[in-house]
């Protein structure tokens, strides 16, 4: 479904701010799989998802989605295959448009937009029914401005929008990181339900070890722009949050060792 081969991305190359965000990542995600990514801050998780979504083109490597070589497709063209939820709950919706209008826009994801009425009676009642399923009491407010909702409500709606038309690939970049625990739970549950119901191929970044252990059939840990730990099957099923924390601790120690070694080298040679 998703084939990533040897992608590299360096931001601000040749400047003091040079960041090698992706250093040769290759991954193959099967149809219907749910892959979770964890990793330290700045390890390149978002960059990897953005590369798949087409926010920028990689310096090297190729990306295939559902058999299409999308390496050079612009972001808006990939949207016909990809549904997306952002870390920032305000990035996925337009605040000045009504809830119904936002969903109507999503109902044409990846399709051409003509001069037909954005909202007809049929679509309105469909939107109302779907939103009623959220149990957030929003079904009576579909003509209110999106901007009048909380971050959690907007994120739940972004999730509905990303999956309104079944995407070949669903990208979730820490969808609950900016939410309070209660809304985070709600959005997480919703995501799990939708993914299971539509059997969506999903690629999710998370900071929560609980989520990482509970969700998905595969777990990848990123470090310095590379996947360094990749488990699936029974290993993934058995993994517990504490073990993942230990992995992080292990990484931190080896980092410290690296630093100590570098310091020693520096002292003896400079």
């Amino acid at each position: 479904m998703l084939e990533i081969r040897g992608i590299r991305k360096t931001f601000n190359p040749g400047t003091p701010n040079e960041v090698r965000a992706l250093q040769g990542v290759s991954l193959s995600l099967p149809e219907g799989g749910f892959t979770v990514i964890i990793g330290t801050n700045g390890s390149g998780k978002s960059t990897l998802l953005n590369a798949v979504a087409g926010s920028f083109f990689p310096d090297e490597g190729t990306i295939h989605i559902a058999g299409n070589d999308v390496t050079h497709w612009p972001e808006h063209k990939r949207a016909s295959l990809v549904g997306r939820v952002f870390q920032d709950p305000f990035k996925g919706t337009a605040p000045g448009l009504s809830i119904a209008e936002n969903l109507a826009l999503a109902s044409l994801r990846g399709q051409s937009r003509g001069l037909g009425k954005a909202l007809n009676a049929g679509l309105r009642s469909q939107i109302r029914d779907t939103i009623a399923g959220l149990n957030m009491g929003l079904e009576d407010r579909i003509d209110n401005a999106m901007g009048s909702l909380s971050g959690g409500q907007r994120q739940a709606l972004t999730l509905l929008m990303a999956t309104w038309l079944k995407p070949r690939l669903l990208l979730l970049d820490e969808p609950t990181a900016a939410l309070d625990p209660k809304s985070a739970d709600k959005v997480t549950t919703l995501a799990g339900e939708i993914v299971a119901r539509d059997k969506l191929t999903t690629f999710m970044v998370t900071h929560s070890m609980q989520q990482a252990a509970a969700f998905g059939d595969r777990l990848i840990m990123m470090h310095r722009g590379q996947p360094i730990y990749d488990i699936s099957g029974d290993d993934k099923k058995r993994v517990r949050p504490v073990e993942l924390l230990e992995k992080f601790e292990e990484l931190r120690r080896s980092e410290l060792l690296d630093e100590a070694a570098a310091e020693m080298l520096e002292r003896s040679y400079v």
Binding site: V82, K91, L97, E101, R109
Partner: peptide, 19 residues
């Protein structure tokens, strides 16, 4: 509607397939 939404949130419209 796509035009208005682009003015408010171009990133969202790209994610929904509009240039």
């Amino acid at each position: 509607a796509a035009l208005r939404a682009t003015g408010e949130n171009p990133q969202m419209m790209r994610a929904l397939g509009t240039d």
